Computed example of a mutant assay.
Amino acid sequence: MPKSLSLRAGLGSVLFWSVISAAFIGPGSVTACAIAGSKYGLQLLWVLTFATLGTVWLQEAAARITIATGKDLGQVITQTYAGAGGRRIAWALFLAIFLGCAAYQAGNILGAVAGLALLTGFPVPTLTIIVGLVCTALLWIGSTQGLANMLGLVVFAMGGAFIYVAFGTPVTPMALTKALVTPSFPDGSLLLINGLIGTTIVPYNLFFGSSIVSGQSLGEMKLGIWVAVVLGGIISVVLLLAGLLIPNDFSYPHMAQVLTDQLGTWAGSLFAFGLFAAGFASSLTAPLAASVTAQSLLGIRKNSPVYRGIWLTVMATGLTFGLLNVTPIPVIVAVQAINGILLPFVTIFLFAAVNNRSILGDNYCNSMSQNLAMGLVVVVTAVLGLWNVWLAIQAG
């Protein structure tokens, strides 16, 4: 008989998988969701429903592979595609994840520094150097997990403030429910739609989550992912609703002012610190995820010079954008959209791996309903990504 799931084990699993929701509630989510609400009202809420469910389906599939085989997603992919062709596939997947992590890191550093600048008023270049050096030191010595978890709690506290603010928006339950399930594509919204997807269904989280799941039962894993990711999705929704209250073009000072007006000065400061915490925590996970993916797909030894060189390159990318003092919001939206475009390339191989009965057996392979759900994510993200590329070509 399958092992029953105790309350303690269930709560432990939710806390364990909160690392995934904390990873996607970064500067990208704060920015993209608030801009969506400020610019398009409720019209893009359906994207968050799709992206949250997509995250659950894909993370569950990646974790199930590890539970079934004792190997992570990258190792199963390399086992499935052997020989020279398999090596090329592994390198192509690694490069896609690496580019995505580098793009994310640019937004992470810019978001973390923007939050600190709101709090302290210190010069952006100085703050960028400080953030970069601290992140690099923590990654070098390997002391990241506890700090990332603590900062994740700050991000969730910020989400609690936004939940309170969301109740002050003039939105009826009927309108909210309808917007959550009714697709719409307002003019000029396609890049932001891809951004909302890319900042929620984070491609590197599929490899990262698969690499940390060992030791959990299927029941613990499923409960933990469903609860943790849906909570993250709820925070994304209330971030969008809070954006409805921003009367002018979105900016971080405007968002801080909205919270200050609704709750008091402490809430504006909490937003600034939460933005920093989200960016800083993600600045630790994105470089690390690039190296973990290389370890999984390419067999790179942990903490080898190549392993460290990979995360150092990702870190350097973020620092370069920070030191160039570029405007953070357009960059953050753009890099989330890039990851939304890269996402189908990764999910196609996950889809193939989780249907490989010769490796997983009948008990762990996808069911028909799971294939339909994953297939929907693959098709929708591929269509939206190609649509965005086509529009970019036409504009060029």
Rank of each mutant, 00 (worst) to 15 (best):
A157G: 14
A157S: 10
A157T: 12
M158S: 05
M158W: 08
M158K: 02
G160L: 15
F162W: 06
F162M: 14
F162C: 14
Y164L: 11
Y164M: 11
A166E: 02
A166T: 06
A166D: 04
F167N: 00
G168I: 01
P170K: 06
P170C: 03
T172Y: 04
T172R: 05
P173S: 02
M174L: 14
A175K: 06
L176K: 05
L176Q: 06
T177C: 02
A179L: 09
L180E: 10
V181K: 07
V181G: 03
T182L: 09
T182S: 14
P183M: 01
S184E: 13
D187F: 09
S189Q: 09
L190G: 05
L191E: 13
L191V: 14
L192D: 07
L192I: 08
L192N: 09
L192H: 09
N194D: 13
N194K: 05
N194C: 15
N194V: 03
G195K: 11
G195F: 12
I197K: 05
G198F: 08
T199G: 07
I201S: 04
V202N: 04
Y204R: 06
N205S: 10
L206N: 09
L206Q: 13
F208R: 02
F208C: 01
G209I: 00
S210M: 10
S210K: 09
S210Y: 12
S210A: 15
S211G: 08
S211N: 07
S211K: 10
S211Y: 07
I212F: 01
I212M: 14
V213D: 03
S214I: 02
G215W: 06
G215E: 02
Q216S: 11
Q216N: 15
S217G: 11
S217V: 00
G219C: 00
G219H: 10
E220S: 13
E220F: 00
E220A: 11
K222Y: 02
I225F: 03
I225V: 13
I225S: 00
W226Y: 13
V229T: 15
V229Q: 10
V229Y: 07
L231E: 06
L231V: 13
G232D: 13
I234R: 05
I234P: 00
I234Y: 07
S236C: 12
V237E: 04
V238S: 09
V238P: 07
L240M: 15
L240F: 04
G243V: 10
G243E: 12
L244Q: 00
P247H: 12
N248M: 10
D249M: 08
F250V: 11
F250I: 12
S251C: 08
Y252F: 15
Y252A: 09
Y252L: 09
Y252N: 11
H254C: 02
M255G: 06
A256S: 14
Q257E: 15
V258D: 01
L259P: 02
L259F: 09
D261N: 12
Q262P: 00
Q262L: 06
G264W: 03
G264S: 04
G264Q: 05
G264N: 03
T265V: 11
W266N: 04
